[in-house]
Amino acid sequence: MTAGKLNTFVWLHPSQGAALRSIARANAHAEAEWIASERERLGIRPDQPTPESIRLEAFALRPGTWPTASHLVETAMRRRLSAPDLAGPWPPFTPDERESQRLSGRRPGTPNERFTDKVAVDIAPDVIASAQLAAYRISQPVVAQLRAENLIGPSASRSRAARVRREELQSQIFTVGRIAREAINRLTASQG
């Protein structure tokens, strides 16, 4: 885990995970080639360690030149969160709302989409907090509508019409995962 970052799992469709990993692998390969060329330029033998100065320079260049999956996802999420539909401004969480964010499990109304791949990434806490707040504020009226129409909860209507309406409303729900997946989709589309 990177210092100052939150280790986060993002559940993805396999194609999204494969595309993200492909970009990250290509970046890691380019970084390794750069380090090898620097070693060669300095005449460092294969049995000698890479000097700290080269390692530090590679580390400093990595986020902008050879971003890892974590760098890619964090940057893509920042871009996605700056889009007009997510940018806010949003009222901050109340103490009760903030406490509810700590609860485990699915949020009310989260779509029943299936994801079979996951990626572990280190993301800055401010990005996660912004995504949580945007997702909550955007989804709040939709979740209220789901409750008002008795479409979620233990006594929810199970009729065909109710299922169709629930799915229609659930498609409007935002989660941190959805924001990350949309960000990854935009990233991989721009790289392809």
Rank of each mutant, 00 (worst) to 15 (best):
G4Y: 10
G4C: 00
K5C: 09
K5T: 05
K5R: 13
K5D: 01
T8V: 14
F9W: 14
V10F: 04
W11K: 01
H13N: 00
S15T: 11
A18E: 02
A19C: 02
A19W: 07
A30R: 12
E33R: 15
E33N: 10
I35M: 08
I35A: 08
A36G: 07
R39Y: 12
P49V: 13
T50R: 01
S53W: 14
R55Y: 08
E57Q: 11
A60Q: 10
R62F: 02
P63Y: 08
W66M: 07
A69E: 05
L72W: 01
E74Y: 02
R79C: 14
R80W: 00
L81G: 01
S82I: 00
S82D: 15
P84W: 01
D85N: 08
P92Y: 07
P92F: 01
P95F: 03
D96Q: 12
E97H: 05
R98D: 07
E99A: 14
S100V: 05
G105K: 03
R106Q: 13
R107L: 12
T110G: 02
T110P: 03
E113L: 15
D117L: 11
D117Q: 14
K118C: 15
K118Q: 15
V119H: 00
V121Y: 05
V121E: 03
D126R: 04
I128S: 03
A129R: 08
S130R: 12
Q132A: 03
A134L: 03
V142F: 11
A144W: 08
R147V: 12
E149P: 00
G153E: 01
A156E: 03
R160G: 09
V164R: 14
R165S: 04
E167L: 06
I173R: 02
R178L: 15
R181E: 05
R181D: 02
A183T: 11
G192D: 06
